[in-house]
Design a protein around this nucleic acid. Structure first.
Length: 637
RNA sequence: GCCCAUGUAGCUCAGUCGGUAGAGCGCUUCCUUGGUAAGGAAGAGGUUCACCAGUUCGAUUCUGGUCAUGGGCUCCA
């Protein structure tokens, strides 16, 4: 008699030793069909394994995140089996689950996307056969014998600790070394797709074998796959590199790889972003400063960058002196601080700087506005007394939330603690980390902790935003710095008339303006809110005789603070409307004889709706309200 | 930096099994003066196909290199 305790504390009894599947079936057939694996004492195991003693178990179903991971890992096996059928010479290495699907690294001749169809066809056959995954435990010797033709697996097996049991999984004719667990049978892979292929090194080591990495994704449900494919296509359509060209915002040139060029319209958006930033920061008690782009090597030696960051820095020799272009704004900020003597009464000092920094990233890492070599940080350094850490960090969190929500961006927080390689004393780290924690707790939002992921000079809070497609991006960061105030011997006079060391934080909210711009383009799919969009209104005279009148209106609009153009081309109205729609101009204003005589406006918005006969005030009041209040894409009329 | 792919007019792309290149959009001019998503016609535009070498009688096409762009190079059987 075996007694199984289920998560709801009910107990099921079995005459004979049941498998996990039997237990699931005893709940219901339907439930059993949706079970993927089971958990015994927090250990994930296959559903097909027998449960030979009394214990508590819970089930992982197709609705659990873990269930999906198991499915994807099993999918990697299916893919590997299919590849082997087509390329019998291929040698398998590892096939893990990643954030967005799975991959398998395989030692084989390079193949291309064109070969995916054949692999997918094989995979379909395997899935249709509903092969079960059978687990078998073997000795190290047996394992080495089975995989003697595969040096990668042999390497893996030899590295396994003696204490761990070595398991194999067989589905159909295919056997792979694997810890498991797996889905009960291959038929559970209802929707899958191979996504991409790339080279990867065995053990991520450039000196080792070059492997082919095949990426795929899978779901329990074909609909979910279709949704995912749709999301990818939607993301492709929103690609900021394509939209940037189409909307004439920015461009990239070989002559300065990784250093974007902003066009007039791109600068309109850029300036709107910065105007907003300045307004909010002023309100939050920041001052704005500016430091040079190029500074003497001595400064970088003092700051520690020469030692820790040199390979990413651009350098130059001028008059026999070595200089470096700044990769960060902080050392310059140190010099600013040191231009005068501070009292505790002067703190906190919040000094913002929209600084242009250059970092020599790997050529292969560059990508549109997302990964560049020259960018502007919306930086700020806050100098304060130790007691002020909590309130200051809280202030930055609140300011960040204010700013992100203006764009309709959700976010979450992560706290990174002391890494192995770090400077400073235990007490300093403790004080700093607790300061951040205190602020986070007071802020009240849930946060993740990344142990050991902090910077070597201090702990940090990272802010990850979530865009309209659900993708997350790390933008904001709040970093406590226990190194620079020391290195530059920053001080302030305390109440006790003694010198004290200020605490310093670096923080950004947009992060990189360039990157944030790119994220916004994709987030809004090119359709910026009114306050942000480069051309807010376009005037369309319906014939040439009305062009001058249209220009008069344009001047009035510009006076009122609206970015505006007149389309005076000798094209049909239809045509001009179409072009304005395609350029995502939010206010399309037709000027005809009726409007001229009645001093009215007829406005078409991007949803295709037309309002005729608006008076100037009827138009300007709501439009200026939305611009001034920086609303999101709401209906204006 | 490394691997794979790509690089043809301002944009999107076709093409040449090696014989010095095309379309659509855009642009210019002319006609059209049109009331809410493409009016019509003509024309210009490539130092000749990213750049540099090599093979060849001849290279945009083949080979090698360089540069740029894209995907990946972190998730461990």
């Amino acid at each position: 008699m075996i007694n199984i305790t289920l998560p709801d504390n009910s107990i099921k009894s079995f005459e004979n030793i049941p498998s996990g599947l039997d237990i699931a079936k005893s709940i219901s057939e339907g439930f059993a069909r949706n079970c993927v694996a089971m958990k015994m004492d927090d250990r994930l195991i296959d559903l097909t394994l027998p449960v030979s003693q009394d214990c508590a178990i819970s089930f992982v179903t197709t609705r659990d995140e873990q269930g999906l991971e198991i499915l994807r890992h099993s999918s990697a096996h299916v893919m590997a089996e299919a590849v082997l059928k087509i390329y019998p010479e291929a040698k398998l290495t590892i096939g893990p689950v990643v954030e967005d699907g799975f991959y398998y690294d395989i030692d084989m001749e390079p193949i291309s996307k064109d070969d995916f169809a054949a692999v997918e066809t094989e995979m379909k056959k395997i899935i249709k056969a509903k092969n079960t995954f059978e687990r078998k435990v073997v000795t190290k010797k047996e394992a080495l014998d089975i995989f003697k033709d595969n040096p990668f697996k042999v390497e893996l097996i030899n590295e396994l600790p003696g204490s761990e049991e070595i398991s194999l999984y067989r589905n159909g004719d295919f056997i792979d070394l694997c810890r498991g667990p797996h889905i009960p049978h291959t038929g559970m892979v209802k929707g899958f797709k191979l996504l991409k292929i790339s080279g990867a090194y065995w053990r991520a080591d450039q000196a080792r074998e070059q492997l082919q990495r095949l990426y795929g994704i899978s779901f329990f449900d074909k609909k979910k796959l279709n949704k995912y494919i749709h999301m990818i296509e939607e993301a492709k359509k929103r690609d900021h590199r394509k939209l940037g060209t189409k909307l004439d915002l920015y461009s990239f040139h070989e002559e300065a790889a990784g250093m974007p060029f902003f066009h007039a319209k791109g600068m309109d958006v850029w300036n709107a972003l910065l105007d907003y930033w300045r307004q909010e920061h002023k309100k939050a008690g920041y001052v704005e400063t500016k430091t040079p782009v190029m500074l003497n090597k001595k400064l970088w030696v003092q700051s520690g960058h020469w030692e820790n960051y040199r390979e990413n820095m651009y350098t130059s020799v001028i008059d026999d002196e070595e200089y470096a272009i700044k990769p960060m704004n902080c050392p310059g900020g140190m010099l600013l601080y040191k231009t005068k003597a501070y009292s505790y009464r002067d703190l906190p000092l919040r000094a913002g700087e929209v600084g242009l920094v250059h970092r020599h990233e790997f050529s292969g890492a560059l990508s549109g506005l997302f990964r560049v070599r020259a960018f502007h940080q919306d930086d700020a350094h806050i100098f304060m007394t130790p007691e002020q850490i909590g309130t200051e960090v809280l202030g930055v969190l609140k300011l960040s939330q204010r700013i992100y929500s203006r764009f309709g961006l959700d976010f979450h927080l992560e706290l990174s603690t002391r890494p192995k390689k770090s400077i400073g004393s235990d007490e300093q780290w403790e004080e700093a980390t607790n300061g951040l924690k205190k602020a986070l707790d007071e802020y009240g939002l849930e946060y993740f902790i990344n142990e050991g992921d902090g910077a070597f000079y201090g702990p940090k809070i990272d802010i990850h935003i979530k865009d309209a497609l659900g993708r997350t991006w790390q933008c904001g960061t709040i970093q406590l710095d226990m190194s620079l105030p020391e290195r530059f011997d920053l001080t302030y006079k305390g109440k006790d008339n003694e010198k004290h060391r200020p605490i310093m934080i670096h923080r950004v909210i947009y992060g990189s303006l360039e990157r944030f711009f790119g994220i916004l383009v994709e987030h809004f799919a090119g359709k910026f809110p009114l306050w942000l969009t480069p051309v807010q209104a376009v005037l369309l005279p319906i014939n040439q005789d009305l062009a001058d009148y249209a220009d008069q209106i344009k001047l009035q609009f510009e006076d009122a603070g609206i970015r505006c153009e007149t389309d005076k081309r000798s094209e049909t109205l239809k045509r001009k409307v179409r072009d304005a729609q395609i350029a995502y101009v939010p206010l399309i204003i037709t000027i005809g004889d009726k409007e001229k005589q009645g001093h009215t406006l007829s406005v078409r918005t991007l949803d295709g709706k037309v309002k005729m006969g608006l008076s100037m005030d009827d138009f300007l009041n709501p439009v200026l309200h939305h611009i001034k209040n920086r609303t999101l894409n709401e209906a204006i009329f």
